[in-house]
Design a protein around this nucleic acid. Structure first.
Lengths: 230, 230
DNA sequence: ACAAAAGTGTTAATCTTACACCCATGG
DNA sequence: CCATGGGTGTAAGATTAACACTTTTGT
């Protein structure tokens, strides 16, 4: 009941997802420079400062450790088992973040790539602490959530060809999707705006119309009781 | 990055839901004896001990403060804004718990009723700290979750008449449900066992068959890819 | 015998699924 | 002209939603 002798530390961690058509869904990891778990890969994160909100702490740590700015951020789960850090009791509030495809490409090309790096969610390296557990929870969450919330768009560019959206869903749901049924359903929701642009095909093939997610319209429709579901 | 000057305290809180046919869905609150918010109602909870898991802390605090044992417990959300407690920085990992109807009735009758009490979720008193926010998140969660997870059964007795289940769903979803369609759908899931018992009617009316939730069968079917959804 | 609650089927409408051919472009 | 990827409609099957009368009990 008394709090005076409590010495628990509070940290935040962020599982950042990125996507590209070619590489699929990836997470951003950093390589640890010091023990414990020296040289292992870990989810970016760190201690919360006095007077700093949890979300601000996440954004600050991501900026410091990877230089990235995320597009979408939500709390995932709090991991607090004694013993999850061998040095001391640390509870960590894990977040779940999405970056747009453009940002994803950008970090890939940057020179910091030695200590911050993307890994495809099917080819994860050894991870420090209980970070594999955290990642599993995050992957489960994104898989479940993409089905009933329009978060997929946060991973694409602002303007995207329809096939990218479809490919993202196939990747995350891990099954084939019928192109005709999928596009009919998506368009019927009324939250995609067709643009005048066309993708310049890489290689052969017919160029595709580009679409844009209409966030306002989505908010509106959601308020009216529509529910997104693929 | 350095943790040495961090003085954040870690607490857990539990939103406990109970249900009875007559009073609907209620939450368990305790009355504060000391400032701040003296005499206000609050969600039960308290500080996490060194070396104690978060879930153990919740169960201990519930036992100490209300004498109740919960049937279902899941992590809800972590509230950590600076300023949510006027005295010091406290982050609180909120949990979400369900007790069976029998337990619900029991506490109601107990003598501790001065400082622990059930409140219908439509008639909440003034709450301490940000506990109203926590409650709102919890209520949203139970409403959403009851639709795709069989958590409703955790609020009923082990053996229950079908009408109770239906009434619980109507209460939480806040709309009428067609008796025939609902029972057909529920029974089709194959997770309810019919018993030989019959309810003794309180007052008039035909006695109803009693049912039991078959947890094993549910686990089994879930593994095989069935998905619960009302 | 009547009031109250439980039990039970059918039909129309909607939504979901499966399926295949033509079109625009680059090489 | 051919290879590649984009674009589009229809029909059968499954699911959901709407709807009312009979049965059993207590009073």
């Amino acid at each position: 009941m008394t709090s005076s002798e409590q010495h628990i530390k509070v940290a935040v961690d962020a599982v950042v997802f990125g996507y590209s058509k070619h590489e699929g869904v990836s997470v951003l990891l950093i390589q640890r420079k010091y023990p414990p778990f020296q040289n292992s890969w870990a989810i970016p994160g760190g201690f919360v400062l006095e007077g700093e909100s949890l979300e601000a702490a996440v954004r600050r740590e991501l900026q410091e450790e990877t230089g990235i700015e995320v597009n979408y951020l939500e709390q995932l789960y709090t991991f607090g088992d004694p013993g999850r850090d061998p040095r001391q009791r640390i509870i960590s509030i894990a977040y779940f973040a999405l970056v747009q495809s453009a940002q994803f490409q950008q970090l890939k090309a940057s020179t910091d790539a030695e200590h911050a790096q993307w890994f495809g969610i099917k080819q994860l390296p050894e991870l420090a602490f209980d970070h594999l557990d955290i990642l599993k929870v995050a992957i489960e969450r994104i898989r479940a959530k993409i089905r009933y919330q329009p978060i997929g768009f946060e991973l694409l560019d602002k303007v995207f060809p329809f096939a990218d959206l479809e490919h993202l869903y196939m990747t995350l749901l891990d099954r084939d999707i019928d192109r005709r049924n999928f596009s009919r359903k998506m368009l019927a929701l009324g939250i995609l705006d067709e643009t005048n642009e066309y993708a310049k095909p890489e290689g052969k093939g017919r160029p595709s119309k580009m679409y844009r997610f209409n966030e306002q319209r989505y908010q509106q429709l959601e308020k009216e009781g529509m529910n997104f579901e693929v």
